[in-house]
Design a protein around this nucleic acid. Sequence first.
DNA 1: ATTTCAATAGATGTTGATATCTATTATATG
DNA 2: CATATAATAGATATCAACATCTATTGAAAT
Lengths: 146, 146
Amino acid sequence: MFLNQTSQYALRAMTGLVRADNTKPISSNELAQYSGVPSHYLSKIMRKMVEAGYVKSQKGHGGGFLLSVEPSKINIMDVLTAAGFEAGSQPCVFGYEKCEDKNPCPLHPIWKRLKDSFNEWAFNTTFEEIGKEAALISRDDFNQNN
Amino acid sequence: MFLNQTSQYALRAMTGLVRADNTKPISSNELAQYSGVPSHYLSKIMRKMVEAGYVKSQKGHGGGFLLSVEPSKINIMDVLTAAGFEAGSQPCVFGYEKCEDKNPCPLHPIWKRLKDSFNEWAFNTTFEEIGKEAALISRDDFNQNN
DNA sequence: ATTTCAATAGATGTTGATATCTATTATATG
DNA sequence: CATATAATAGATATCAACATCTATTGAAAT
């Protein structure tokens, strides 16, 4: 609901990265374990995070992924966008090409309310906050079996 | 975004019904025209609205669909549910079977905020309100060419 | 009665997101 | 240097949502 699978996977993975200690890389497999995302698929998603500049990757023995930006500098929308979510074009519920305050579709004002609250959430929630919340939930998520 | 195609189609169609004068049935084709939903597919969705009791259908010449409930008695969540949206089970973003305030996933509190604002929107927006808003937008939507 | 309109039902087709597989490239460690 | 580890890339497979098609049933109008 709300977000497609890929977007949700990206949020899970980035949550894992924020929770990790970030002194040594965390491998795709470890992240997959934590997040429950199929590991090969996760690799592809992480690639996008690398391309967007939020993550550094290290090949070879002992390699993996590392956050390359302060968690406070990344918000949910950033990650969604990097994962391919079309942030700008939140399409009209009525399918209008151009649906704006002038020339709106019949559901425009209603739909706008929903979009606004989503955007509020996505732009204002940073991964610093996510890391803190996640830490409260479990001091040891990385060892838990899903 | 947010809702799958079918759910959005259902909202469009019900908006059309609320906008109609409700003294004579509006046909699947007319509704399709208004809403831009493929007409055969719309029929299937309308069937669900009929089964849920929000709409009456009339076969044969001059037939079509009629609201069978006061618009103020139907909210967005009602229509989504009737269209097959799993209202109760808003699945955990981390894929946990049971994700609750106790035994939460790492993203639980963050995700909950989003769900809450969605639910607030879906439960508290009635089709009475939708009808009024839609009426303000166009006095004559039914004659416009998409 | 017959014709025409329109919903209903079920079968089938299409497509895009999701997932997997295989091979390749890069790098740390013994 | 050899080996094991791990990311990357591209091809392919899977599946469910979405959409269409065909035939049938029901009801109004002439």
